[in-house]
Design a protein around this nucleic acid. Sequence first.
DNA 1: GAGCACTGC
Length: 785
Amino acid sequence: MRELRYKKQIYDLVKKRSQEDDNVNEYRMPDAYDDEGGVNQEKRFSVAMERYRDSKDGDKMNPFAEQEAWEDHQIGKATLKYGSKNKKQADDYNFVFEDQIEFIQGQVMGGVNVDDEVNEEEYEKSIAKSAHEKLLADRKTLPVYPYRESLLKAVEDHQVLVIVGETGSGKTTQIPQYLHEAGYTKRGMIGCTQPRRVAAMSVAARVSQEMNVKLGHEVGYSIRFEDCTSDKTVLKYMTDGMLLREFLGEPDLQSYSVVMVDEAHERTLSTDILFGLVKDIARFRPDLKLLISSATLDAEKFSDYFDSAPIFKIPGRRFPVEINYTKAPEADYLDAAIVTALQIHVTQPPGDGDILVFLTGQEEIETAEEILKHRTRGLGSKIAELIICPIYANLPTELQAKIFEPTPEGARKVVLATNIAETSLTIDGIKYVIDPGFVKMKSYNPRTGMESLLITPISKASANQRAGRSGRTGPGKCFRLYTAYNYFNDLDDNTVPEIQRTNLANVVLSLKSLGIHDLLNFDFMDPPPAEALLKALELLFALSALNKHGELTKVGRKMAEFPLDPMLSKMIVASDKYKCSDEIISIAAMLSIGSSIFYRPKDKQVHADNARLNFHMGNVGDHIALLKVYSSWKETNFSTQWCYENYIQVRSMKRARDIRDQLEGLLERVEIELVSNPGDLEAIKKSITSGYFPHSAKMQKNGSYRTVKHPQTVYIHPSSGLAQVLPRWVVYHELVLTTKEYMRQVSELKPEWLVEIAPHYYQLKDVEDLASKKMPRGEGRASKD
DNA sequence: GAGCACTGC
């Protein structure tokens, strides 16, 4: 009954929408009513299919014969349908495979006209003589161009302006130039923030070309590890995190006349903090202009937050995207995604566009790749070639390049991507998007301090962003593997902003060092949970970064200089006392890149594990092992070959080197001497403990651990060098919740260090070892080495 | 004996 009611609602909804929207080409009655409960001949599983299915469960006899029978059957259907009906393929594609998925067409999204004045512009372009003149002509063809004067007027009249500019409007490249041309740069720089490094670099490069100046002179960019600006710079593109760092050195942003926060709708941690800060300084700097640029959906919200700032709308340049929903919810979205991809591939003419599938992670992508390869192999030359391209952030760079290679004639590309394809990279030639509606998202529990990655449904905003990836170079189609009802009723409007689901220790330290004391009443657009703020304050107090009154201490000020989590910063500050800052910054760099240092391909897991064991010799613990990895690599003069031989990710190591170099430079600023003391492992571990003493745990009888301060049962992660050693006392880098509550990156600890290093945090009774009455200290299993 | 979405300083 429930199912039926849903379908009725979908029907009404789709019908209503189709009447409202003239863009809907054709409304197809959902089949839900005529075959409800009945068996449609077309859809009945063939004998071959049933046998195939059975063979998957119990009886594994002759699986390949079954598979072949099934494939032959499918091919028959596919070629039949494709050959006989090449005109209305779109309507028939879902009858090609037996375990087909039926879609219902919903709304058509976007479809902002690709300017009618195109001809005039083309003319203008054609008469341009030099390359630079062509660039100038191009500037005038952008959708934002007609709004130049009214935009300048609006900026003049209002201090804060919310700009709604869809992708392709040219807002990021043009608006700063307009303001420059109008003379705003006489009073200071125009800063434009981006959520990603590559965006800041490429936009700056484009603008410098348009202005015919050398990149880094009048137009520059500033990102971590790379400051490409000079005294001449008036237009500065930068990452949002970089502007946040600049705030620390210049709390009134005196050198800027305009700040434009671009892509504000992405709500990164940094933009959310920037909002509060720029809103605050705008009050006593009436000459500072603020531009907040966002996508359509939440413009009102931005306007409300900035005291009803006017909203300035600029149309984009997009092609229409037809949205399709499944008729019924799909139980297995991975299978549904694969079937849909094959349906599209077989029924749509080759060469008309590639397919992009959004999956949640590496493992899922690898599984999908295997299944797709297996199924298309069986089809052989009877169908057009399907090129499978996996893409995720951890994929080695040389393999990532594959998605950008043009699709050969007569073939089709299917890109299996994580969320990396939602905003971070754009792939040309995508016409079809398959969206199962899930994403892997990090969540943080402030009570337990535990992080976990959960597969969660995406938001409507995210679903629309995904759909839009199909309409970049021509009209697109999006296949959502969930129902229209799910979309309208179950999905949240927007993704929960990062600030509400992350550890805030670093945020709080930065705000404190900006002199913001009342954090619970700080004007956040969406305030984080009070519990998370309190947890952060509590930690900073424990680390002696804050005093009793919540004010920053000398130690805290030093810590704030480092772009790291406070516990890592504290570890570095403490290394000054133990005379091993050289080793500690290497460890800090290695820890701060996360745990994707060791490369472990499926087919060489044993080799990879053996290579890793080398660094764990002597059960020194994971921190020292990381140090050994870094030092060994440095001894080879940062050899790439060495990384391959030891199954270590080259990219991660290069990142660690960059971070380490930066940390080394910062040591001087906080007056810590760079001292090397590689032999004294105790000094190194004491420095680590100085930052990580709140993360101590004691082994229990069954080999599990009990965290000391906020007691909970945890385990050493199996990838740890100490997983088999089980020392009595350990200090850990982080807690993650996966199949169990795991400690990742673990080192052995002497309990007396805790009272020695953090007497304000641990009393003797905390570290009292009942067993030690029978067994003297130091006789634990780990100490036998 | 497990599994790491994506950014950023």
